[in-house]
């Protein structure tokens, strides 16, 4: 599984949505499922899947799937 596939699956699991709904364009508050509670579950899922510890600024800034890629890249996760 590529890093992007792992990321998409983590979003689908964390937000409780179909994998098909997840794309780089998916943004915070753009779907009812991605609210502040789901955001925390999502962060926990991402930390678990990528074995990273995100700081509070990253948690606040993670406003889309594309932004998640940028943030995880700082933690040496590589996306094609």
């Amino acid at each position: 599984m590529t890093s992007t596939q792992t990321l998409y699956q983590a979003f689908a699991t964390g937000l409780g949505v179909d994998l098909a709904q997840v794309s780089d364009e998916l943004a915070y508050n753009s779907i009812p499922q991605w609210d502040s509670t789901a955001h925390m579950i999502l962060i926990a899922e991402l930390e678990n899947q990528f074995d990273v510890m995100l700081d509070t600024d990253d948690i606040i800034d993670m406003s889309s799937v594309a932004k998640a890629k940028e943030i995880l890249a700082k933690h040496d996760v590589q996306f094609a």
Partner: peptide, 9 residues
């Protein structure tokens, strides 16, 4: 930018 964001808590 921060309305509805976790930082609002």
């Amino acid at each position: 930018r921060y309305r509805g964001n976790i930082v609002a808590f």
